[in-house]
Simulated scan of single mutants.
Amino acid sequence: MAYPVKWYASQMQGAPSLGDTADGALAALLKAVLVTGFGTLTINSLVWDAATGWAKATISAGHAYLQDSVIEVSGASPAAYNGEHRAMKVSSTEVWFELDGGNPGSAASGVMSMKVAPLGWTLTHESGDGKMAIYRPTDVSASGNVSLRIDNTAFSGWFGATYMGYLAKMQLVEDVVDINTYTLIADQRWPATGRYSDKRWDLIGDPQLFYFLPAYASGNYQSMFAVGYLKSVRPGDRYHAITLNYSSTNADDSNRRWNVGVGGSFTNYGTQGLTFDDTTNRLLARPYSQLFGVVGCWFKGMFTRFGTGMNVPNGADNAFYMSTDPIMVMETGNHLRGYLPGLICPFASVSAWYRKNFSNMPALPGKIVRFVSGTYTESTTQGAPTMVGFDLTGPWR
């Protein structure tokens, strides 16, 4: 089965760490998620479980694969067990997963392994040490001319000597010749480590766009970053790549002191990616005209941000409300450029739902939804994280 959307989290089997003070951790994390997959373990037995109608893999030494994630099996015979599958249930030593063709007819044999399946982007260029890389969606005809370049080396200024920020370059590029030869569209920053936090992270994406929510700095909040292609309304659009960025390119910015916790001064290290009607730290590669130069944009919603607007439960009907409509992306000048796919806008934030998955909600039958909380202001003293939902089933387009 094809899985157009996949999700990843720091507690998964073999998940790469966001790191602490060393350069290269973000680059390694993105390569593992986007291209190679991670968390490979040996399968000791693989059978068809008639009671559940799923295949059952036993990993005697134990594992940390998660329900609802997409795993990849290789080395099994019959071959029907191989490939990418949705994990339907897990125990400490077993993983049950769905098979399109049903019962393969016999238990599997061979040198069998399982890993968390990659998102399926293409790595086009990489430095020898792996700390710089250029990625693009695999199907260029469905996306556009823009690639993502990550520079997670110890370049001058990546580390804040006084105020302790750690930033990697997140760049939009085109006309790529090699890792150092390209046309620069935009030069932004993402957090390069999880310094001072518990280093948890979530990443949800499809073949053209992904959302990355790392925890970093002493506030220990996750913030939402993104890169990739929105759903454009313009025919033939080749520059509808969008980014959500860190609020500064200066890792030693005195207003963004990673080593100061919530309640202190100068903790403006959050992002505003979950707010509506706000152009802060987000851009499109080119305007709808396709002429050179980045352009600002903002998202439209019913209330001021994700995760707010109504009581939960709603008094009149004891319900929880959310919007499943695609998020409008407005370009500077009040032009609708397209829609930001995969997001679900809850009208309240429920702390007990944080980083939890829900299946077959009344408004979304047949879907799996994951709720994560992220910052909605730069200042961690002015607001706790707000909740956003992600469609883990898709397709987003």
Rank of each mutant, 00 (worst) to 15 (best):
residue 112 M to Q: 01
residue 102 G to T: 11
residue 117 A to N: 04
residue 70 V to A: 09
residue 71 I to T: 08
residue 111 V to Q: 09
residue 76 A to G: 04
residue 82 N to G: 04
residue 102 G to H: 05
residue 95 V to G: 08
residue 123 L to Q: 11
residue 72 E to Q: 15
residue 72 E to W: 07
residue 80 A to T: 13
residue 111 V to M: 01
residue 88 M to E: 13
residue 65 Y to F: 15
residue 63 H to P: 13
residue 63 H to R: 13
residue 55 A to N: 09
residue 133 A to L: 09
residue 88 M to A: 09
residue 101 G to I: 06
residue 90 V to H: 10
residue 130 G to D: 13
residue 66 L to F: 01
residue 91 S to P: 03
residue 57 A to Q: 11
residue 57 A to N: 04
residue 127 S to G: 13
residue 126 E to H: 11
residue 128 G to A: 13
residue 68 D to F: 10
residue 130 G to R: 11
residue 113 S to T: 13
residue 63 H to M: 14
residue 62 G to F: 05
residue 81 Y to C: 05
residue 112 M to P: 00
residue 79 A to L: 15
residue 62 G to W: 03
residue 86 R to A: 10
residue 121 W to P: 07
residue 110 G to Q: 01
residue 95 V to A: 12
residue 117 A to F: 12
residue 57 A to V: 10
residue 64 A to H: 12
residue 135 Y to G: 00
residue 74 S to R: 14
residue 82 N to L: 05
residue 63 H to K: 15
residue 55 A to M: 02
residue 127 S to K: 11
residue 101 G to Y: 04
residue 108 A to Q: 08
residue 107 A to R: 00
residue 106 S to P: 00
residue 121 W to N: 05
residue 58 T to S: 14
residue 122 T to M: 07
residue 83 G to N: 12
residue 97 F to K: 09
residue 96 W to I: 03
residue 71 I to L: 13
residue 69 S to F: 08
residue 93 T to D: 05
residue 74 S to M: 14
residue 112 M to H: 01
residue 129 D to T: 06
residue 121 W to T: 06
residue 62 G to V: 11
residue 75 G to Q: 07
residue 129 D to F: 08
residue 109 S to L: 00
residue 107 A to H: 01
residue 123 L to M: 09
residue 133 A to E: 10
residue 78 P to T: 02
residue 129 D to I: 03
residue 104 P to F: 02
residue 127 S to M: 12
residue 114 M to E: 02
residue 57 A to F: 08
residue 101 G to D: 02
residue 60 S to K: 14
residue 107 A to I: 01
residue 124 T to Y: 06
residue 62 G to T: 14
residue 62 G to D: 10
residue 111 V to I: 10
residue 121 W to D: 04
residue 109 S to G: 06
residue 86 R to F: 00
residue 127 S to E: 06
residue 82 N to P: 07
residue 58 T to W: 09
residue 84 E to R: 15
residue 58 T to F: 04
residue 75 G to A: 07
residue 68 D to E: 13
residue 122 T to I: 08
residue 79 A to Y: 04
residue 92 S to W: 05
residue 65 Y to V: 06
residue 109 S to N: 02
residue 105 G to F: 05
residue 114 M to D: 02
residue 86 R to G: 02
residue 59 I to C: 03
residue 73 V to N: 02
residue 122 T to E: 15
residue 59 I to V: 15
residue 133 A to C: 09
residue 130 G to T: 14
residue 109 S to W: 00
residue 96 W to E: 08
residue 104 P to K: 12
residue 55 A to T: 08
residue 130 G to W: 09
residue 64 A to F: 09
residue 61 A to M: 05
residue 128 G to H: 03
